[in-house]
Amino acid sequence: MAETMAGTEADLARVLSRHAPLVIAVSGGVDSLTLATFAGRIAPVTVAHAVSPAVPDEATRRVRRLAAQEGWTLQVIEAGEFADPDYLRNPLNRCYFCKRNLYARIRSVTAGVIAAGTNTDDLGEYRPGLAAAGENGVVHPYVEAGMSKADLRGLAARLGLDGIASLPAQPCLASRVETGIPIRAEDLAFIDRVETLMRAAAAPGAPADLRCRLTRDGVRIETSEALSDATLARVTALCREAGRSWAGVAPYRRGSAFVARGGR
């Protein structure tokens, strides 16, 4: 295993050397933070992080902390997707419009090669953002090096990014809104508030997969562990305070708000 991983890292290093000068689009999740850390320990690296109502504040704080620690050149930009009516109407391919705006904004501030944290596991999923990446010449070093999600988590651990290596999947807050329900900044702020509350209340070491979904039936909590009565009471109280319908609790299921019932 050690020899295999050493070879994988050597492959990734060779891929990165082909794409200099590199600008890494960093969201604040394990994939892009690991890529930036690995690249930055080989050569100086520029990192672009986009802020918007769809990006949790904690993700931005995580990027800033690691940038200061690792000595990256950090460019924080406005993502710009909230000025795009195609994005706001939340169609099935919403991610395409999000990434189209993101990469255009990054391109406006740099001439470097834009790299993303896409890994081989992502290629088997519906990822409309990959089309926007292709249109903007974005490269995917993990894919070129044949690295999966498990591979990059192992790399993160070897780089000493222990807290980051174990981060759960953290897609943008807009992914919690059922397809076809318009994206609104106040809805995303509510989602972030509820999920922050639930994470804080979770038992140490408990499974971290949880989502606050906005559906046509109301707010639905999805979690891979049982909510305590106290946490459930606090969540339902937040819903009442915000004037939102309560749709109950269900087991966590990845992407369950992505497609609305009855079509797009």
Rank of each mutant, 00 (worst) to 15 (best):
P128A: 13
A156S: 13
T60W: 04
R261M: 09
P204D: 14
R213G: 00
V47Y: 05
R264M: 02
M5K: 06
T120R: 05
C212T: 05
L33Y: 07
R220M: 12
A201C: 08
V55M: 09
A54R: 02
G263N: 13
I42H: 10
P251T: 09
S245Y: 06
I191Q: 02
V138M: 11
E186C: 04
G71M: 11
R41P: 07
S27I: 04
V143C: 13
P21Y: 06
A83S: 13
I24Q: 03
R65E: 10
V235H: 00
G7A: 15
A260G: 14
R213M: 04
Y252E: 05
T110Q: 08
G134Q: 14
T34M: 05
L173E: 05
A237L: 11
R240N: 12
R127E: 13
S148H: 10
P56F: 03
I164E: 10
N119M: 11
H19I: 14
L197S: 04
I221F: 02
A2R: 13
A201W: 00
A200T: 11
V235M: 03
T37A: 13
T196W: 08
A104V: 05
P53V: 07
A111I: 13
P182V: 09
R100N: 15
L92P: 00
P182H: 07
A206C: 07
R89V: 13
G7W: 07
G205C: 11
G248C: 11
N119E: 11
V55G: 00
A116K: 00
P141Y: 08
T73F: 14
Y252F: 12
L210S: 04
V23K: 02
S228V: 10
L33W: 06
I181Q: 00
R89D: 07
Y142H: 09
P207N: 10
R253Q: 15
V15E: 04
P44Q: 13
I114E: 02
D162Q: 12
A25G: 14
P251E: 15
R107F: 12
P91Q: 07
